[in-house]
Computed example of a mutant assay.
Amino acid sequence: MSETSTRDAVVATADDLFYRRGIQAVGMDELRTAAGVSLKRLYSEFKSKDEIVQAVLARRTGVWQECVSSRVDAAASARDKLLAIYDYLVEWTAEEEFRGCGFVNTFGEIGALNEDVADAVRAHKEGFAAYVRGLAVDAGLGPDVAEQLVLLAEGVQTMAAVTHDPRWADAARAAAATLIDAGLAARG
């Protein structure tokens, strides 16, 4: 394996294990075995488990942005671009392996103990909020509507994970459509 592919394989494996089982439940020996690398190679790529967690969060940010933006970019109107976020959430929360937001899970598990993790999670969430604000402005909506849309998107991930019921995403999409339409009508 090349250095890049070894690193990528470790991060992808860690992402999967951490998401399914939790960060603290996964030891370095289990991670190296699952990734198919020696412990020596694992530590030559990453100085610590914390460094792996940071790499996983960076990977998750990229995956999230790609999944959401591919749906948004395919939508025709500014309204549909906002609703495309919820279309993605409807699809994602229905996946069998859905366990909620990996950022919230990570923050809840180790964010209070690790300021770097807390900062990475905050940066991701703030980036998503800024993205939604941009889409809302493009649609002719105010920042108040954008904030409400962000709360709906974040809330559905929690409710769908806790209840194991993806219908929360359908409810969030319907609420988002109502908010968008009311905001557009008010600007009228």
Results as ranks from 00 to 15, higher is better:
63 V>S: 00
57 L>Y: 00
9 A>V: 01
36 G>T: 02
68 V>H: 07
97 E>F: 06
50 D>P: 08
84 A>Q: 08
93 T>C: 09
81 K>Y: 02
35 A>N: 02
83 L>M: 09
64 W>C: 01
108 G>V: 01
39 L>N: 10
62 G>T: 04
101 C>A: 13
58 A>I: 01
65 Q>F: 07
29 D>V: 13
30 E>N: 02
72 V>K: 06
73 D>C: 10
111 G>P: 03
103 F>M: 15
108 G>F: 09
76 A>Q: 15
30 E>Q: 13
103 F>K: 11
109 E>V: 08
40 K>V: 12
47 K>C: 00
98 F>P: 12
31 L>W: 05
9 A>E: 10
41 R>L: 09
14 A>F: 03
55 A>Y: 02
69 S>V: 08
29 D>Q: 12
65 Q>I: 00
106 T>A: 14
70 S>Y: 10
35 A>S: 09
61 T>S: 02
72 V>M: 06
83 L>N: 11
115 E>R: 01
17 L>C: 07
77 S>I: 03
26 V>T: 06
114 N>A: 08
74 A>R: 15
8 D>M: 10
94 A>L: 03
87 D>K: 08
86 Y>T: 06
102 G>K: 13
23 I>K: 04
102 G>C: 11
99 R>Q: 15
11 V>F: 04
82 L>M: 10
106 T>R: 15
87 D>L: 12
45 E>H: 13
105 N>E: 09
75 A>P: 14
95 E>M: 07
44 S>L: 06
114 N>Y: 01
61 T>K: 09
13 T>M: 01
61 T>R: 07
25 A>K: 12
74 A>T: 13
90 V>E: 15
